[in-house]
Each structure stands twice: as structure tokens, then as C-alpha cells.
Design a protein around this nucleic acid. Structure first.
Length: 521
RNA sequence: GCUCCCGUAGUCUAGUCCGGUCAAGGAUUCGGGGCCUUCGACCCCGUAACGCGGGUUCGAAUCCCGCCGGGAGCACCA
């Protein structure tokens, strides 16, 4: 019997089942719900969770930082925990410098994102408390002072070779460590290295550097310290001293987990567990932080809110709600896979929020002037609904014909055919369409609504120039209906058949052109 | 090269730890239809996936082995 059934197509099997047990045997399967949002944190107790955000102040926050922001925020809310903002402002390097303006900027970005930390701390204030930990590690024989040049150190690490100083006993190391601190060594002349295992299969983990000497001027603490901890060591200290209960960070930092744990084991202290997520990229956002930085600094970009930066503030400027960004970001869970997502997914999330509440306006890009012969005199003006499905959003009066501005691209597509000026009248277009900025004539045909291609129009007598800043940083010139003269800063509109736009924050009523930023279709 | 991580439809994701209820769910995209005087929204329908090869098992997306593919790390940056 079984053998007979095997190999039958599914449909056939279903038929036989129906004959055997009827519909009862094939009850519709219950729909499974969507999965839970984020997994529980190991050992998390409500009210006792302490999380930390650790941005490096070398630029504004961008869309890629969103995951760190919203995941931490989400858990903080779930467990009613504390969220510490700890600026990871050790000196950095020549290429990666701490800059004063970014402390304020990041605070602003967090506020924009709706993330309000319970405390704001600076790593640069905590350096002196890292020194005793260094001593303890040295005393345990866990570290040595290495005077190899950086390149040699790197080379040796790759080949698993020890440098002569690796043989130091703690007493000797302590002496050398003091010399590092008292200025006997120049920057680059000596470092404190962890003693792991040079045969460790992971070359990245072999005798990593714990402290180095730098005399870069720090914007907050100046030259107060010349011996600076590296990220892994500083967090091994601070995650414990600040009472952090869970470390949630991107998987680019997994090796740092191992470093922290190694140090904790060495010193016999207990540290928090780590959770990671993979790298999230937006397909359209080829964000290179250093490129954005350079372009903003050089003035090529329109500041940190330039759409090309994909910074949080640029998304806000485009009318993308941080709440939509949060939903979007959280929808990826804590997957460790590296993913690339089209921006459309974010736009879809935003559109859901915007569509119902956003009023419609008429806008035409790169217009051609069209005079309609035989246009009805009584239709010099009309009123239009602010929203097609929501009468409660009201109506506005608009100036109509006989002179219109229409998009050249629309005209070209329908040249020689009859079209409908949306919500107004039907006209026949000639075969020849002039360049944008030119003028032409069309012929009125009828008034009733017909199933004709619909064209967006702006009445020429009351048109207002509009400048749309596009996502690629270019500016598109066009005209909008007169009602846009009253546009308020940061107001969001849907330009019908064009997309959602947001009025720039520094626009005053009456400004021409009206400057708006394109959000998405 | 070495180490670690990851491979479910076009793109994300749920399911994988604890094998059967997965004839694989959701989102987005795409296609078709409906409705509305937007190419938008909404409603309905549809296309479409367990990387490959072995093994264990009555039974594998799930466990084991091998391969292939992708990513990250190997800084005196964070």
C-alpha cells in the first residue's frame, strides 16, 4: 500500500485522501504567526539590565549604525534596563581622529532616533582607572612591553614568532611599563602586549597590543595621557567597572569578545556575555564613512544631512520616520548573516506611516507650457481634495487653465494622443513636443472623466518654482501648485505621481523656489 | 594563507539548539485582478526557496561528514 502511494503526484494523493477521510482529514492548516521579534537576553532580569552604546566620535550616525541603536534601545525597553552612552573616544589615530563637534552631533542623532541614554560617559575620562588593571595583568605575567617596530611586530605575529622581549618576567615588565608611563619612550617606541599563544591558530589573536603611546592632542583631555588603552582592553575594564550586563554589538567585533574573556579569566573576574549581529548594508547606500567625511568637510556635500551620506539626519530630512527605520532594522532580528537590503524595504515601511496622513500636492518637473485651445471659461479655478481617501483632510483651491505646465516626459509619451489632465478635463496633444521650458498648444476635447492616461498639471498663472533635492544630491527644477507657497518647514507632502517629499527645515513661507527633499516614491 | 561566522524564493526573515504538527510561515519585490479621477494607498489572487554531495533515521530545512559559495578579522583604528 505504501509502495503504491509513493511516487504519486501530490494532487493525486490529495484526491485519495479526500475519498478516504473527506475534508475532515484535510483541515486547513492553522497559519503560523510571525516569529518573535528578538530573542531573550541570557540571564536578563527586568530592571537589572545594563547596556551600553559605544560610538566613536568621528562622524554623525548613519543608517548602518541604526542596528546598534535600535537593538540596544529595544532590549532596554523590554527589560526596563539602563542604557549607557559611552563615547569610545580614546585618541584614535592619525586617520581616525576624535573631533569635538561629533560629541554634540551624536547626542543630537540619538535624540532624533528617540534613544535617550540614562547616562553619558567618556572613555577619555576613565583612562587613569585602566592603569591599575594593566598592572594586575602584568603582575599575573599576562603581558610584556614590546619595543619592536610596528611592521616587525605584525610580521612576527603572522609567522608566530616571538620577539626577544616576550621572555620578560613581571618585575621587568613593570619597570618597562613605568618607563612607558613616565615618558621615556616616544610614541611608537614601545607597547604593552598581551601574552597569549603564538601558536594560536587565529593569527589575529596572537599577543595583541593592549596599550600604546600617543601624543595626539585629544579634544577633551588634551595631552593628559600619553599611554592609551586599545579598544579591547578598555572594554574589558569598563564592561566590568560600569556593571554592563550584556554587550550587544556587531560581529565585526567578535574577536574582541575573546580578548575580553581572556583578560577576565586571567584576572579571575566575571564579565557579561556578548551578542552579535551581522553586517547590514543598504544596497543603494554605498556609504563610505571616510568618503562622506571628506565630501562634507570639503563642502561638496550639503553638510551631514546631505542625502548621499545616508546619515540619520539625512533620512529625517527626507521625511523618513525614525520609527520606520526602527521597525525596519529590528525586522532583521539578530541574524549573524551579513545582509544587503534594498532601500525599498525601508521605504515601504515608511510609506505605511506616511500615506494616510500626508496631503497631496501637484508638482511637475521640467515643465513645458501648454495652452489649451477651447478650454472652458468656467474652469479657470477648481478645488481638489487634499487626500483621495480622507475627506477630513480638506480641500484646496487651485488655479487651472487655459494655460498649464506639464512635464515634458509625460507629454512625450503621449504625443499625438488624447489624455486627461487629472481631475480636470480631456485634451488632445499634438505630435510635436518642444524642449522643456518651451511652449505648445493642445486642444480641449471634453470634460467627463474617461479612462485616458492621466497627466499631472499645474496651472500656469499660479505656479510656484520648486527645487527638489534628489537622493543622489542633484537638484531637479520644477513647478508646483500655488498652495505650496504656504509650505511650512519640515512639512511632508506627496507630490502626486512623483513621490513623498519634505520641505527643508530652513525654508520660510514665501521663499522661491520652494526647497524640498525627495524621500521616496 | 590562517581564524571565526553565515548560506531558506529576486531581496530580507521565521523555523535549525530539542528531527515528524514545514505539502516551509511573514515582509518586500514582481505579475494578474478589483477599487479610487495618482504610476500612490487599500483589497484579492498568483509566481517563487531549504547551496551541492554523502551519511544517520521509519522520517532531515533541522543531526553528522565532505565540498562549494559569501562575509568579517588577522592595525601601536574603533
Amino acid at each position: 500500500m505504501v509502495a503504491e502511494l509513493e511516487g504519486l503526484p501530490v494532487g493525486e494523493l490529495a484526491d485519495r485522501l479526500d475519498r478516504l477521510g473527506g475534508p475532515e482529514a484535510r483541515a486547513p492548516r492553522p497559519k503560523r504567526a510571525e516569529g518573535p521579534e528578538l530573542p531573550e537576553l541570557p540571564g536578563a532580569e527586568p530592571g537589572k539590565v545594563v547596556l551600553r552604546l559605544a560610538p566613536f566620535p568621528s562622524g554623525g550616525l548613519h543608517i548602518g549604525n541604526g542596528r546598534m541603536l535600535f537593538v540596544n534601545q529595544q532590549y532596554r525597553e523590554r527589560y526596563r534596563g539602563r542604557l549607557l552612552l559611552v563615547f569610545d573616544d580614546t585618541v584614535g589615530s592619525e586617520e581616525k581622529r576624535v573631533e569635538t563637534e561629533f560629541f554634540e552631533m551624536i547626542l543630537g542623532d540619538l535624540d532624533l532616533a528617540g534613544v535617550r541614554p540614562d547616562a553619558v560617559l567618556y572613555k577619555s575620562d576613565r583612562i587613569s582607572s585602566h592603569y591599575p588593571w594593566a598592572r594586575r595583568v602584568i603582575e599575573k605575567g599576562g603581558a610584556y612591553v614590546c619595543r619592536c617596530p610596528a611592521e616587525l611586530l605584525r610580521e612576527n605575529r603572522l609567522h608566530g614568532l616571538a620577539c626577544p622581549e616576550r621572555a620578560q618576567v613581571p618585575g621587568e615588565t613593570l619597570v618597562e611599563w613605568e618607563k612607558m608611563l613616565d615618558g621615556s619612550y616616544a610614541p611608537g617606541a614601545a607597547v604593552l602586549r598581551l601574552r597569549t599563544d603564538l601558536a594560536d591558530p587565529d593569527p589575529a589573536f596572537r599577543d595583541r597590543v593592549l596599550f600604546r603611546i600617543s601624543d595626539l592632542d585629544h579634544p577633551r583631555v588634551g595631552h593628559r595621557y600619553r599611554v592609551w588603552p586599545l579598544l579591547e582592553f578598555s572594554w574589558a575594564v569598563d564592561d566590568v567597572e560600569l556593571g554592563v550586563t550584556h554587550v550587544l554589538r556587531g560581529k565585526d567585533l567578535v574577536m574582541e569578545d575573546r580578548m575580553e574573556r581572556y583578560l577576565w579569566d586571567l584576572l579571575g573576574v566575571q564579565g557579561p556575555p556578548f551578542l552579535h549581529w551581522g553586517i547590514l548594508r543598504i544596497r543603494e547606500a554605498k556609504v563610505s564613512k571616510s568618503k562622506s567625511y571628506a565630501e562634507v568637510k570639503s563642502g561638496l556635500y550639503d553638510g551631514w544631512a546631505d542625502p548621499r551620506t545616508w546619515s540619520l539626519r539625512s533620512l529625517d530630512r527626507r521625511g523618513i520616520a525614525m520609527e520606520a527605520l526602527r521597525e525596519f532594522t529590528l525586522s532583521f532580528g539578530l541574524s549573524l548573516a551579513d545582509i544587503e537590503v534594498p532601500a525599498e524595504t525601508l521605504y515601504a515601511e515608511n510609506r505605511k506611516r506616511l500615506d494616510a496622513s500626508t496631503v497631496r500636492r501637484s508638482f511637475v518637473a521640467e515643465p513645458v507650457r501648454v495652452e489649451v485651445d477651447g478650454y472652458p471659461f468656467d474652469l479657470a479655478e477648481t478645488t481638489l481634495a487634499n487626500h483621495p481617501d480622507r475627506p477630513e483632510l480638506g480641500r484646496r483651491a487651485v488655479t487651472a487653465g487655459p494655460e498649464f505646465l506639464l512635464a515634458r516626459t509625460d507629454l512625450v509619451v503621449h504625443a499625438g494622443h488624447e489624455v486627461r489632465l487629472k481631475d480636470l478635463v480631456n485634451v488632445r496633444l499634438p505630435a510635436d513636443i518642444p524642449a522643456s521650458g518651451g511652449s505648445m498648444r493642445a486642444t480641449f476635447t471634453s470634460r467627463p472623466n474617461q479612462r485616458l492616461p492621466r497627466l499631472q498639471w499645474v496651472g500656469a498663472r499660479d505656479a510656484v518654482p520648486v527645487d527638489v533635492l534628489e537622493i543622489d544630491g542633484s537638484h531637479r527644477r520644477g513647478v508646483g501648485e500655488g498652495a505650496l507657497r504656504a509650505a511650512r518647514p519640515r512639512e511632508i507632502f506627496q507630490f502626486e505621481r512623483y513621490g513623498f517629499v519634505r520641505v527643508d527645515a530652513d525654508v520660510s513661507p514665501g521663499d522661491e523656489p520652494v526647497r524640498v527633499v525627495f524621500g521616496h516614491a
